[in-house]
Computed example of a mutant assay.
Amino acid sequence: MYLLYGGPGNANLAPHAALQEAGLAEGSDYRFVKLDLKAGEHRKPDYLALNPHGVVPALVIEKDGSRQIVCEAAAILMHIADLYPASGLAPTPGSAERAAYYQWITYLTNTVQARFMNFYHADYFIDGSAGQAAVKAKADTALKEHFAHIDATLAKHGPYLLGDAFSAADLFLFMLTRWGRNLSRPARDFPQVGKHFERVLARPAVRRTLAIEGIS
């Protein structure tokens, strides 16, 4: 049994969709433990025992009497892909496609997701409304540059990040594109990024994930 802790649409969205893509059923194979982030449930002792940093997601793996905890969205996502190779979420280890897969997920989490922290949580980095507005504005500019790069790549090598093959990296991009709805140029307004979003959104596993998390 897996327990995936998170909040609707938060960084748990991509790994949650991976569980569904792998053919797991919520309630029998895993449970989505929905936390009220606005109420601070992710900072209460029970959750901090799972993830001392007080952020989501966290995946608890209970098997044969043992218990393992995996944190960080990208790590959980890649671990699920490796646990269920038949899902096709990750290319063959050692292949050129696998290297590109690692590169995309690392770029999306280390570079793009990090800028979203600046955009949505400028108060984490600087005090004062003027400084926070400046941090958010710079993040907005950087994120638009990143989505322009992704858009150009999809135009040349798409329809997915690895070409014709869908992978877990596309789930991560889908999640970030959704987060980009509040940019001065929404992420979905980039033509190929928007098409990619709709293509991933149409997948039954992704639609089930959104329904479970309560996202319309």
Rank of each mutant, 00 (worst) to 15 (best):
104 W>Y: 04
60 V>G: 08
128 G>C: 02
50 L>C: 01
63 K>S: 15
51 N>P: 11
116 F>T: 01
144 K>I: 10
94 G>Q: 05
17 A>T: 01
71 C>G: 03
211 A>L: 11
126 I>Y: 02
154 L>D: 01
103 Q>Y: 01
79 H>C: 03
126 I>E: 00
129 S>W: 08
146 H>T: 04
95 S>M: 08
78 M>I: 00
210 L>G: 06
12 N>V: 01
107 Y>T: 12
189 D>N: 13
97 E>I: 03
132 Q>I: 04
193 V>D: 08
102 Y>I: 04
149 H>P: 06
137 A>D: 04
85 P>Q: 13
88 G>I: 09
63 K>H: 15
159 P>N: 05
173 L>Q: 05
164 D>A: 15
87 S>V: 03
63 K>L: 13
97 E>K: 14
138 K>A: 10
90 A>C: 06
72 E>N: 12
171 L>D: 09
188 R>A: 15
94 G>L: 06
121 H>G: 02
206 V>A: 11
41 E>C: 06
158 G>Q: 14
75 A>V: 07
168 A>P: 12
55 V>P: 06
43 R>P: 02
212 I>V: 14
57 P>C: 11
42 H>C: 04
120 Y>Q: 01
206 V>L: 14
214 G>W: 00
53 H>I: 06
197 F>H: 15
37 L>R: 08
10 N>S: 09
153 T>F: 04
43 R>N: 04
141 T>Q: 14
114 A>F: 14
121 H>P: 06
110 N>S: 15
177 T>E: 03
79 H>A: 05
105 I>V: 12
56 V>K: 01
187 A>E: 11
83 L>Q: 13
157 H>M: 12
16 H>T: 00
137 A>G: 08
96 A>N: 08
19 L>T: 06
120 Y>E: 01
132 Q>C: 07
87 S>T: 06
15 P>G: 00
105 I>C: 09
189 D>W: 07
209 T>M: 13
199 R>T: 12
59 L>V: 10
216 S>C: 09
39 A>D: 08
199 R>A: 14
170 D>L: 08
134 A>Y: 05
152 A>S: 06
28 S>W: 04
37 L>C: 07
72 E>Q: 13
139 A>W: 05
94 G>D: 02
128 G>S: 04
144 K>P: 11
34 K>G: 01
90 A>T: 01
53 H>P: 02
95 S>P: 09
107 Y>P: 10
9 G>W: 04
79 H>G: 03
54 G>V: 02
124 Y>W: 15
12 N>F: 02
136 K>W: 04
199 R>I: 07
92 T>D: 10
11 A>T: 04
163 G>N: 13
